[in-house]
Design a protein around this nucleic acid. Structure first.
Lengths: 200, 200
DNA sequence: CCCTATTGCGAATGTTTATTCGCATTCAAT
DNA sequence: ATTGAATGCGAATAAACATTCGCAATAGGG
């Protein structure tokens, strides 16, 4: 951020720019995100955008940060309530939460995640991955006796990426899918549970 | 393709354009693929490119077709030899084959697959998905007695996407990974086997 | 009320690229 | 050898955007 907003109106402006960016991405995709359009949608001028963001990527990064925050918040909300349940139920709860965030705001999170290879987005995904690893470790610790679980980096990596990208693909299908959302979640939860409880 | 090449030299030109496109993508990524650069690398002019491709996307689609063909060929080469083995060995063989293709040509297939959401690439991925579903059905049929397997669309979808995208992510990591390639393949093969043999 | 830092503006600039088109060259059939 | 079709050329065109910059408006402390 080139300059940090000190006045109230400036802070509002920055917020509304991020909001507008989210709206544009949700409606027409990340490719359609242009600085002029974002500014217009926020009801300000391009020049003002560059007052607070070094360049377009910084804006995208800020948007990603926000969406990532939503994702982590959603997961954090359900995890504590389910830390005492068996692995499949635990996985299911997290999955439902993630699913909801991916569908919220016309699929904003989904559209952003699609572009995980972009530098400004990759950081967010990595942070989310890290957070999920921590969560998994917490669960493993809580369930040491009842449901011994292996939170090795390899398994956590596989788990997170398998789930996230399968969800992404499912939600991005243009044609009506061959199976229901329920089926997908069931199978994914079962797979996750088997993965983390499988013997070494 | 605007016009189909009838003369020998034209067919060679088309081929060398696709080759060049692959080289550019492998070296500098899909973003760096410009028509002028491809033409230059192929030793021809942009005009000639447009003689045989309607637009840039058609060229990308042609490249994707070729890479997709490689992928399917690689899988077809190992599948018959392993159709009699247990699910984990079968999965492992296919995985190794896919891994190799993803690493070949400086990661050309990987770079293309990263952009699965692009229309010109999505078709290829979908065709590959379809092919893997067929393969899985063939395996299920061959192993009816020995290793009963469920090739339901939902499971096949999860299987393919989990494996492909986890591989992609693993191979795209900038930092040295926290676990070895062997570990990854082992875990993925085990996961795949558990997924398709799990009871309904 | 005054003054200066902050904020806001948006037309203009510069770059990057896909795509075209009129002309030149080569092929291959007769 | 002739000729029409196929091929090849690459400078020119046009559209899309990110980013800048000189100027205008506003805030809020003194």
């Amino acid at each position: 951020m080139r300059k940090k907003p000190t006045q109230q109106r400036a802070r509002i402006l920055v917020d509304s720019l991020i909001d507008a960016a989210g709206e544009v991405v949700a409606r027409d995709g990340l490719e359609a995100l242009t600085t002029v359009r974002v500014a217009a949608r926020a009801g300000v001028s391009v020049g003002s955008l560059y007052q607070y963001f070094d360049n377009k990527n910084t804006l995208v990064a800020a948007l990603m940060d926000r969406v990532n925050g939503d994702l982590i918040a959603a997961v954090n909300r359900v995890a504590p309530q389910n830390i005492g349940t068996d692995p499949q139920a635990f996985a299911r709860a997290l999955l439902e939460a993630a699913f909801e965030v991916f569908e919220a705001r016309q699929g904003l999170a989904r559209e952003l995640m699609r572009h995980w290879h972009r530098l400004d987005i990759a950081r967010g995904l990595h942070r989310f991955e890290q957070h999920m690893l921590d969560l998994l470790r917490g669960y493993a610790l809580a369930q040491l006796r009842e449901h011994p679980v292996d939170p090795s980096p390899a398994r956590a990596f596989i788990l997170i990426n398998s789930v996230v990208f399968t969800l992404l693909r499912y939600l991005s299908q243009p044609t009506p899918p061959l199976f229901t959302r329920e089926q997908l979640i069931d199978e994914l939860a079962a797979m996750a549970a088997r993965l983390i409880t499988a013997p070494r």
